[in-house]
Design a protein around this nucleic acid. Sequence first.
RNA 1: CGGGGUGUAGCGUAGCCCGGUUAUCGCGCCUCGUUUGGGACGAGGAGGUCGCAAGUUCGAAUCUUGCCACCCCGACCA
Length: 490
Amino acid sequence: MSKKLTTREEDYSKWYNELVIKADLAENSGVRGCMVIKPYGFAIWEKMQAELDRMFKETGHENAYFPMFIPKSYFSKEASHVDGFAKECAVVTHYRLKNDENGKVVVDENAKLEEELIVRPTSETIIWDTYRKWIESYRDLPILVNQWANVVRWEMRTRLFLRTTEFLWQEGHTAHATKQEAIEESKQMQEVYAEFAENFMAMPVIKGSKSESERFAGALETYTIEALMQDGKALQAGTSHFLGQNFAKAFDVKFTSKEGKREYVWATSWGVSTRLMGALVMTHSDDKGLVLPPNLAPIQVVIVPIYRNDEHLDAISEKVDELSKSLKSNGVSVKYDKRDTHKPGWKFAEYELKGVPLRIAMGPRDLENGTLEIARRDTSEKKTIAIDETVDYVVSTLKTIQDDLFVKALKFRNEHITEVNSFDEFKEVLETKGGFVSAHWDGSIETEEKIKDLTKATIRCVPNNAEIEQGVCVFTGAKSEKRVLFAKAY
RNA sequence: CGGGGUGUAGCGUAGCCCGGUUAUCGCGCCUCGUUUGGGACGAGGAGGUCGCAAGUUCGAAUCUUGCCACCCCGACCA
């Protein structure tokens, strides 16, 4: 039983509050849409980082770090890129403050920068300016670099997790000698993201390509993974761009080929952000709070003692310490919560809110019987098992939960992909059922735009696995060979 | 930047139309006691520039004006 989510932030607060709070910077500054990630929330991000980082390295990438400040002039070099980001940039104009005659802190007008600095909304420009200096020969290629960083985009409207003014992400920027190699790299990273989403987040995604109007500013092709939230809205969960030679030309990055010719480098960029945490929450959580997949849960098993006096507690703790040790040696993260400031019932509710996959309770009754009670967060199923079976049970059940969460989300997702063949049907499905609508489209930006105006639905992607099928555009009746996926999106 | 709305304790709120004791209630917090297998109960207690400023008035959370901030809907976007 999962709660029907809406678009209103307050409806998410029950889940989000465990992970994140809105930064209260607004008092005088007008800064909005920043978030403080709490330790428990950040622990999830760290787990995501660790897995992604491992996958990046397995595919041959290395990490590096580039400056947060980008000189304004860099932005004028790639026209479509600046069009895409110019309206949402934070600009640094001064480098010093001073006290005025009233003792108030003000900007020192004498400390004005010659050239303004842009707080990176993404790092293509500064990275390509650097790559120019790194690349001379085909022997210097490919460059396969990733950066973990924060970026700032001054969006007109923000939404916690999904679109905050500042957010954490990783951005990969690669340089290649051939077009083919760059395309393969961007497709490969789409696969990496999809694998991560499905295997670790237990979140099914559709792999596809963006339509021209949804493409990244400066890209020739944008590969995306699209997920579906429980409220029937789609969420772009990760993107990988084939940038062609646009940035190489803009930043004059050339190499000498084997044949001795000077050629422009081929580029890709790809990224996922803290938005994934929002996706994780909105995919699995229910009325009782978060539901975290075991592979990303900071605490996989919580143990709650039930006791009337110190003797009980000592006896329980002795058993628990032993159990924790063997769980940990099997790679399970365990928390033993023996605080006496909260009652067991309170703790049960607390860890359900936090989405801990398994909860063990051990009380006097169990001490006598050599048992314990174990409860699954995702199904609420409770069982009494023998203490010496526990490690096996936990290890196998964590796997089961991980799989079950994926299967459940996949079922929901698949039930919310609806094929339609008329525009009436199209509107009807969007309004009543939500989810993805699979429909023929004539391939024109105008049609896409009109459909968006009429229904608020956008083309999420042209699925990679879309079959060739003769049909007519659901809106204009013009010929079409492929169905594309439309949805209302975040 | 357009259209709507809101601002009272850490959080959520009543009171405002129709000005009048010490600003209401719940959660949370502190103390003591009884409790502890699903968010305990009782008693006591702390906590407030009623968004800010000016005005009207004997008297303003309440009326007037100005300002500020935030939220929702739209345009923009990962």
